[in-house]
Structure formats: C-alpha cells, structure tokens
Design a protein around this nucleic acid. Structure first.
Lengths: 341, 341
DNA sequence: AATTAGCACTCAACCGCGTCGAGTGCTAAT
DNA sequence: ATTAGCACTCGACGCGGTTGAGTGCTAATT
C-alpha cells in the first residue's frame, strides 16, 4: 500500500492523537494537530480516502475516525518514530530489577512486574526453555522413614521439588545406587529425554535394586516434565481495568489470561526475537481488541524465554516497544551472567 | 440482641432470598418464601423493626430490604444451617487436589484454584510458616568458575534457590568448610535465627577461610528471609468480575489484591483456626463490601498456613463455609503426610 | 487541477417529562 | 395482635426535543 506524503502525515496524526486522547478524531482536531498545513475539507477528503483503504474506521456516521487494526499496523511498520529510552528511565529499570538478582525465576517475575508498572498493561514472561535445557543436578533429601523430597535443578536455573513416598525404608545403599544411576544416565541430558519410559527401562536394567528406586525415578520424571513446561508468568492484569476500552468486556479477557494453556501457546508460538500482534492478528477472539508485544531474550548464544505485554490496541507503541526491548535485553544479560559456565 | 422466633425466620428468609437473587427483598416475596405464615403487612412491620435494629437496610424508600453487615453477621452466627458437603462434592475435591500432591507449594496453589472454581470467588492460601519452620538442608551447586547456585530446603517443604557470585574460584576445600559450618551451626535451626548478623559473626570466627565464604553465607541469609516470608498465593481474581456487586468498583479491589503486603497482613493477622469477616469487619476500606472466610490448617500438631476466600458480602455462607473447612482440613492432612518425620 | 469555504445532513448524547409499578407506612377493621 | 386497604414514594423506563461534533457534497477560489 503506497500512501502519499500527506496521507502518511494525516494517518500518523490520527493514530497519535487517538492514542493520546482515546476519542475518535475529527478533521478539526487534525487541523490543529497538523498546525494548519491543510484545511479541514482537504483533510476530510483524505480521511475518507484512508477509510476506504481500510486504515481508518468510523464508529458511526457523525463521529470522527479511529485507526483500524490495519491502520495501527501501517503506523507501526512505516510511520512510528522509535524513541530511545532516556537515561533516567533506564536507570529506574536497572535499579528496580536489581532486587530480583539471583534466582532467574524471581528475576523474570520481577521483570514482569516492572514492565506492568511501566506500561500500565498486563505483562508476561517465561523462563528460558526448549531444547537446550539440561539436567544439572538431582538431590534426594530424606524427610521421614519412607518419604523423601527429590530436588531437580536445570542448567536454566529452574528448580523443582516434590515429596516422594517409597515402598521401602530409605537406606544409604539405596541412595548410593540412585546417585550412581543418575550421575551416569540422567545428569547432563536434555530435559525432554528424561521421560517415564526411559526411566522404566533404566530401572528394569537394574533388577531388584531398580524396583525400589522406581518411585524416586518416577518423581524425577515428574519433575523433569514440570521443569520443561515453563509456565507463563503473568502480572499486572488489574492494570487493564484502567483502560476504558475494557470497560464492559473484562470478564472474558481476564478469564482468558487466567487459563495457562492458551496463553502459553500464544506466547511460545512466536519464534522470532520480536513480535507485535495487533488486534485480530492473533488467533484468539478474546484478544481481538488487544495488542501483544513480545520480545525474546537470549541466554549466552542460545535463545531464552520471552518477555512481553498485553494491552488494548490503543497503546503507545512508540514508547512501549523500546521499553520491552530494553528490558528484555537487560534480563537476557543478567541471566546469562548468572548462569555462565 | 434477642429476636423473636418470627423475626428470626423473617431475617433468615431475607438473607437467603437475597443471596439467591441479589435483589432487594419486599414483603410480598417474603410471604411466598415463608409460605404464607404471615401476611405482607405483618412482615412489613417486622421488617421495619429489623431495620431499626440495624439488621436490614433499604437502598431507597420504595425498594425492598437488604441485609446489613450486622444482619449477615447475625445470620452467620445464629441462623445459618450448616450443610455438610455431599459425598460427590467431596470426591470431586479429592480427585482434583490429588494432582497437586508432592510439592506443598504446588498443593496449596492447587487448593486455591479448586476453591476459586468451587466458589466463584478469589481464593488465597499460604504455606505453613512462622516459628516452627527449621532449615533442613543447604546445597551449593557450582554453575561457573565463580558462580554457584545455593539451594535451601525447610522442614515445611519450602525450597528457595539463588545464584551467588564469589570473589574467588570455587574449590573442594572451600565447599567442605562450608558444609561443615552449615551442618554444625545452621541446619536444624529455625529460619528466623539465620540472619545476616548471625552469619557475619559466624564467618568472622573462621578468619580468612570465612572471608571467602561470606558471599555464600549472605546468600543463605537471603534465602532464609525469603523462605520465611511465606507469600500469599492468590487465585481466581477474575471470578470476582462475575459478581454484579463489583461492577463499577473492581479497579480498587483488584489493585488491593495485587499488593502483597496488605493482603499478607490481612490473612496472617487472624490467629484463630477459623474466621469470617463480613464487610467492614476487616480494616481495609477497599474490602468494605467484601467478605472473607479464612481457615487454618494444621501440619501434624503444629499450626500451618491459611486457606480462604474473598468475595462479595452477598455469598452463600452456608455452602461456602463448609467447603473452605473441608478443603483446609484435607490440605492439612496431605501436607502432614508428605512431611511426616 | 487542487484546495477550500460553505452548507445541509446525520446521529449519539443529553435533558426533561410523564408513566409505571414495586414497595412502603399508616389507619381502620377484624 | 393481625391484616386488609389505601395513599404515597421513588427509581426505572420510554418518549421526544435539543444540541453539537462531525461528515459529505458542491461551488467558489487559487
């Protein structure tokens, strides 16, 4: 779609004014915004042209125009000025996030909180996941005579624990066998290689000794599965209530956000390092009036998880996109540093 | 406050009808509900009496009556029929919760989800906390040359981890010193005894060796503090949007629920095993139109954490109270079993 | 040919008004 | 002590008129 210079300036003005005010934009308001470069009649003609191109919409006949999803898309792709973050903003983010140092899971949760507060939207984040996460360590901590807590640690810094009931009493010998087994066959392997089937054949190869270990190994499999499905962390949902566009319809949106599966799917479906989904561009009808900004951080040279935000289509893309990018890069660096080999 | 038999029956009918319908209750509707025991005029007289006692309120002159907070309180304390949970409901809860077995933290989160779904309210839960939680185990897992992950496990099954940067390279000797030190001075102690000060003096007593361990010990202190403040888990906030009483005012309520400190304070302030706070009975004005039902589970013979729910004052107390109690007892048993010594 | 002033037209939002009906309080009859 | 009857209250609802922001079209202007 090729727009004239004038059409571009008018579209830009409509989008930015509408983002600022939330109201439909009329020709008069645009004359002011564009400092009288053209008269209201000219602008009206151009607006009607932009509307027939599908870039603007009219809520009703005698109202101003509002950007359509395609309009926002054109703006984001071609017109938007990309502001850099100012130094004080960056410093603010840096000091805020430093309190989450150490535990990657906490760090990402913190990042979500910061992003939510910064943008007045809902924020999501995921742990580094996928194929290159290895099992780093497995520990068994006896709790009672026949109960033990099994702890699993991954190379991504994810830690999972679970109590396991055994059929027999725990003894030193048994633990020794277990540790030898895990050291030889499990540690250092990717998470998804450790499934119930693999462990059963492993146990079977040990004969009677293996039988006693079955519950422990089963628990290890559970933990591996648990650590693998890096759940999406969500924060600042209540921010969305502040936006007028969500006045009546919040229930379904909130309901959607609270279901983990579709959200997970949405976030992880994008494989690129950066993505903006505007309105119906995502496939969930509960989000048809929302935009999603997603950025992927990297841990070392491997791709890590995702940090992003969800808000109404009417958000200040030119401010929020750099914020998401900056925060994501920062988090990537911090996690890389924490997990460096 | 002493009410006549008739007043009690009328108050009961008003409360239960209003809980069912959400509408103000007029004398005519009551004649039906009470199956014509008295005429509408008599009921009107009694209602006006109940209103002057402060148990009923009138939204406006020509509308029916609605229970006041005092009215609900009287109902809950004196009139309410306490239903037992039906067998299928109990079975439902039991099978639902069994998927969370193992990790106490997961279990409690799951319990919150179940309660939220069961009651259509927001649910809260906390881990067993307080004075009798001991440090069970501390592990150091080297990640890089100068970084290590420290893992702390408590007797309540809480697990916390954190990456720690050291000033010097990690070596076997150092870890040995660390493990000896922790085994002798830290393991088995209550969480709150392990603070930065205690660890500093500990390190100082070791001289140069101790200096190298300082970062590790500092991390241990962080983890202990972290494990101590058992954060309130919250679920099902979006359920609240379904209740008409929260139509306009959700923002401030949601904002309140998303702040951890006051919520924490609210939940942990009650020391009894069971509590119902109706409307203004709690000290937060954001919750003045909400009721809170809290129950405390026990782990073995010690008191554990809290499970509860938050909803509008107009909730079906006679159904929800037994649900909360049943679920709480169940969770207590499960955790006890998992952590038994 | 492009731009613009002018004008008739549209339509949601708002306001005032009358009607309706659920519900009340009071009084007099039972 | 209870109840039938009645006048009264007041929010909810629907109707019609007004207002004003904004449009599209046409004719004049550059």
């Amino acid at each position: 779609m090729q727009l004239s210079q004038r059409q571009q300036r008018i579209l830009t003005a409509v989008v930015e004014l509408h983002i600022r005010t939330g109201e439909p934009i009329g020709s008069k308001a645009l004359v002011e915004e564009l400092e009288g470069s053209w008269s209201s009649a000219t602008i009206r003609n151009e607006m009607s042209e932009l509307a027939s191109l599908g870039l603007l919409e009219q809520p009703h006949t005698s109202a101003g125009r509002v950007p359509s999803h395609a309009g926002y898309r054109y703006y984001v792709d071609n017109l938007m000025a990309k502001h850099e973050l100012k130094a004080p903003e960056r410093r603010k983010i840096e000091t805020d996030i430093s309190t989450g140092e150490g535990d990657p899971e906490k760090l990402l949760e913190k990042a979500g909180e910061i992003l939510a507060a910064l943008t007045n939207c809902a924020a999501v984040s995921t742990m580094p996941g996928g194929e290159n996460v290895l099992i780093k360590r497995i520990e068994v901590v006896p709790m009672g005579l026949r109960t033990a807590m099994v702890v699993l640690l991954t190379s991504a810094g994810v830690i999972r624990s679970r109590v396991c009931r055994l059929d027999t009493e725990i003894n030193k010998k048994m633990l020794e066998v277990f540790y030898n087994l895990t050291a030889a066959k499990i540690l250092g392997n990717p998470l998804q290689d450790v499934n119930t089937l693999m462990l059963q054949t492993l146990a079977a190869s040990l004969g009677l000794d293996g039988l006693a270990l079955l519950p422990l190994l089963g628990t290890v499999a559970d933990l591996a599965r648990d650590a693998e499905e890096t759940e999406v962390m969500l924060g600042g949902q209540s921010n969305l209530l502040n936006h007028r566009e969500y006045k009546g319809n919040v229930q379904e949106l909130m309901g959607f956000l609270n279901k983990t599966e579709p959200l997970n799917d949405l976030i992880t479906s994008s494989k690129s390092t950066f993505d903006v989904l505007i309105g119906r561009e995502n496939r969930y009808k509960q989000l048809e009036n929302s935009s999603i900004i997603l950025a992927r951080y990297s841990v070392g040279l491997k791709q890590g998880g995702v940090i992003g935000l969800i808000g109404p289509t009417r958000i200040d893309y030119s401010r929020l996109i750099p914020s998401v990018k900056y925060l994501t890069d920062l988090v990537g660096l911090m996690i890389t540093q924490a997990l460096e080999e």
